[in-house]
Nucleic acid binder design. Structure first.
Lengths: 349, 349
DNA sequence: AACGTTATCGGGAACGTTCCCGATTCAGCG
DNA sequence: CGCTGAATCGGGAACGTTCCCGATAACGTT
C-alpha cells in the first residue's frame, strides 16, 4: 500500500551526482572510487576529493540488489535477555565484524510460530547466512530444511537439530552434566533431581545422558520422578517442586539446565525454606556472571558462550565465502567447566 | 573488491519470472499482486495462484532501493549483555514488530570510536530511524548531530545528550536516586557513598542530583570523597574501595548506579568481608532479575526497561511516519521503583 | 458514424551500482 | 604514413520493483 508521504530527503549523494558535478560518466566515477587502473590518476583525485568533500557513501542497498547479497548474517535465538545468548551474540558480533559482516538479530521468544516467521523474514531480507539456536517449542524443522535446500548457508549452535546436515557448535553438555552429577554423588547425595528443558532439544538429551551416566557409575537406577522437563513458567516451578517434595524419598540434590531454570528453582527452594546446601545440594547449568554473589554462591557448569558464538559465526562465514569446496559438515564440541561453590558443598562445620 | 565466486543461487522467483511464465507484463503482475482494481479478477487469480505455488516473496531490497527506506530501525546500545539493555531491546522489538518494522542491533561497547562507526553504518544502510543510548565515552556528539541534520529520525533513551533536540525517553533517575538515598538516611546511615558512571552522562548527573537532594534534606554536606565516577574495570573497583575505606570516616552506605557497578561493588565488599547490611547498607540501581537471590538480597532501584524501549521505539516510529506535522520534541520520564531488601535493612535482631 | 468511457494491459523509466562493450585519442612502430 | 595498442573514458544493460503514461479493445452515447 503506497503511502503519499514524501520520502525522507536524507541529502545523500550518489555516484550519479558526482558524475554530473564533475562532468564525467557514472562508470568513470564508479571505477575511480574503486581505484581501477584504467582511470587517470588526476581524474581519480578529482573524484576522490569531491566524494570526500560531499561525504559520499556507497548505497549498500543498491549493492545488495546487484550482487544479490547483503553482507549481513541473521541470528535467531530464543531470547536475548539471557546471559548465555547475549554472551554468544557478543562472540558472533566479534567474528562477523572481523570479516566485514553485519549481524541482524531476531528472537523467537521460544515460540515455534515466531521462529518460522523470523526465518521467512531473514530469507526475504536476503541475508547471506543464518545462525540459529532452536526455540524450545520447535519440533518440526521443515522451515529450516527448505531454507537450506534453497541454498542458504545455515549453522546451528547450542540447541541443534539432529536431522539437518550442516555445521553445528555445541558445548560438551554430556560431559558437563556428567561431572556435575558426579560431583553431587561424590558429596554424598543419592536422590538427585534433574531439572531440564523440553525433551525434544538436543541439549536436553545430552545433559540427561550425562546425568544418567553418572548415576550408573554409582549403580543408581533412573527414577523418572526425579527428572522434570520444563517450560519456563513460574507456576510450573511450583508444581514441580510440590511433586518432588511430596515423594516418599524427596531429592537431596539438584542438577538444573539453563540459566532460567537454575534461577527459578533456586528461588523456589529458598521460598520454601529448603536450605542449600544443607537440605539439597545444587548445581546449575548456567552462564550467570553473578553465580558467585548468590545466596549461597551457586555451583554451576559454565559454557564458553562467547567462544561458541565466535566459532559458529566463523563456520557460517566460511560456508558463505565457500572457503571449502565440499563443505564437510562438522560438529564442534566445546568443553564446559564446572565451578564448585557453596551451593553444592558438603555441610560445613 | 569483486570476487569471482558465483552468487548464491537461492532459487528465488521474481515478478519477472511470473510475468514470463504467464505471458504477462511485469506491471500487470505487480498490480495483480497488490490487488489493484484495474486488473481482471481472473488474471489476478492466475497470478496469485502461480505466485503462491512458486513461493514468491517480494524482494525487500529492491523495494528499499526504490522507496529509499528499509522498514528497519537501528538500535545502538553500549552492550547487549546487560540486563537493562536487553530488556529495553525486548521492548523496542515488540513496538517495532507491532508496526511492521525490523530491528537491527549494534553495540558500541562503551567506546566512542565504535559508536561513531556504528552510526556511520546505520546511515549507510539506510535504516529509517535510529534509537540510541550513548556510550560512556561519548563526549562529542557531532556524529549524531550531523546524522540528524541529514534528516535521520533519531530518538534517545536512557543515556541521552543534552544538546540535541529530539524525543528522549528516560527513567526518573533523580527520583530513584533521591528515594534510594533517603531510604539509607532514614535507616540511620550518614556516610553514604555514591558510585556512579562517567560524569558526562545525563543519567550520572540526574542521579547525582537526586543523591545530593536527599543529603541536603538531612543537612549533610556533599563530601566529594564519597562520590566515585567509574568506568567498568575491576581494578578500579578495588582502587575506589581502598580509597573509601581508608577515609577517616569510611562509608556506612552505598548507592550505586547501573547493574555493572552494583555487582562489581557488591562483590568487592564481600571479598573484603565488609558485611552487608551490618557494616554498610547497599542500594543498587539495577534491573537484575536475580537481585532477590543475592547474598544478601539486594535493594535496588528498578527502571521500567521494557517500557522505556517500547515508548522510545514508538516515538521513533511516529517520527518516521510523520504522524505529527511539527514534531514537538518531548522528553518522556518514566517512573522508577525502589525495592527494599535485606541489603539496606537496619541491623536485624 | 464518430466519439467518449471503461476495463484491462504493456512499455519503459527510475532507484544506485557495477561491468561488459565499445569509443576516442595519441604515441610509437615498421 | 597507416596501423597497433595503450590509456582513458562513456553508453547502457542489469539487479527487482513500482508507477506513470499510453495503448487497445469493447462498449455506450449522441
Amino acid at each position: 500500500m503506497p503511502k503519499e508521504d514524501a520520502p525522507e530527503f536524507v541529502d545523500t549523494i550518489t555516484i550519479k551526482d558526482i558524475a554530473k558535478a564533475l562532468n564525467l560518466s557514472t562508470s568513470t566515477v564508479s571505477r575511480a572510487l574503486r581505484d581501477s587502473y584504467e582511470i587517470n590518476p588526476e581524474t581519480k583525485r578529482l573524484v576522490l576529493d569531491y566524494a570526500e568533500k560531499m561525504h559520499y557513501r556507497p548505497n549498500p542497498i543498491a549493492l545488495s540488489l546487484k550482487e544479490n547479497r547483503s553482507q549481513a548474517i541473521g541470528v535467531i535465538v530464543p531470547e536475548i535477555a539471557n546471559t548465555y545468548f547475549s554472551q554468544a551474540i557478543n562472540g558472533i558480533e566479534a567474528a562477523a565484524y572481523e570479516r566485514g559482516y553485519h549481524v541482524v538479530i531476531f528472537q523467537s521468544q521460544e515460540s515455534y510460530e515466531r521462529e518460522v516467521e523470523k526465518v521467512e523474514h531473514l530469507a526475504a531480507r536476503r541475508v547471506d547466512g543464518v545462525l540459529m539456536s532452536l526455540s524450545s517449542h520447535t519440533f518440526d524443522i521443515d522451515h529450516l530444511k527448505t531454507l537450506q535446500d534453497r541454498g542458504m548457508p545455515l549453522v546451528f549452535f547450542d540447541r541443534i537439530p539432529t536431522s539437518i546436515e550442516t555445521h553445528k557448535v555445541v558445548a560438551d553438555n554430556f560431559g558437563g552434566a556428567y561431572r556435575a552429577t558426579l560431583h553431587l554423588l561424590e558429596s554424598g547425595r543419592r536422590r538427585i533431581a534433574h531439572i531440564t528443558s523440553q525433551p525434544g532439544l538436543s541439549i536436553t538429551k545430552e545433559r540427561l545422558s550425562g546425568y544418567l551416566a553418572a548415576l550408573k557409575e554409582y549403580n543408581i537406577d533412573h527414577d523418572e520422578q526425579l527428572v522434570k522437563f520444563c517450560t519456563y513458567t513460574q507456576e510450573e516451578v511450583e508444581a514441580n517442586l510440590d511433586a518432588l517434595f511430596s515423594l516418599a524419598a524427596p531429592p537431596d540434590g539438584f542438577m538444573t539446565a539453563s540459566d532460567r531454570l537454575a534461577l527459578g528453582y533456586y528461588g523456589g527452594l529458598k521460598k520454601r525454606h529448603i536450605r542449600i546446601p544443607e537440605d539439597v545440594a545444587f548445581v546449575g547449568f548456567s552462564n550467570l556472571n553473578v553465580a558467585e554473589l548468590l545466596n549461597p554462591p551457586m555451583s554451576s557448569v559454565v559454557q564458553p558462550a562467547f567462544q561458541m558464538g565466535h566459532t559458529a559465526a566463523g563456520l557460517l562465514l566460511d560456508l558463505i565465502e565457500k572457503k571449502e569446496k565440499f563443505p564437510e559438515y562438522r560438529i564442534e564440541r566445546l568443553s564446559t567447566e564446572l565451578f564448585i561453590r557453596e551451593s553444592s558443598c558438603p555441610n560445613k562445620h
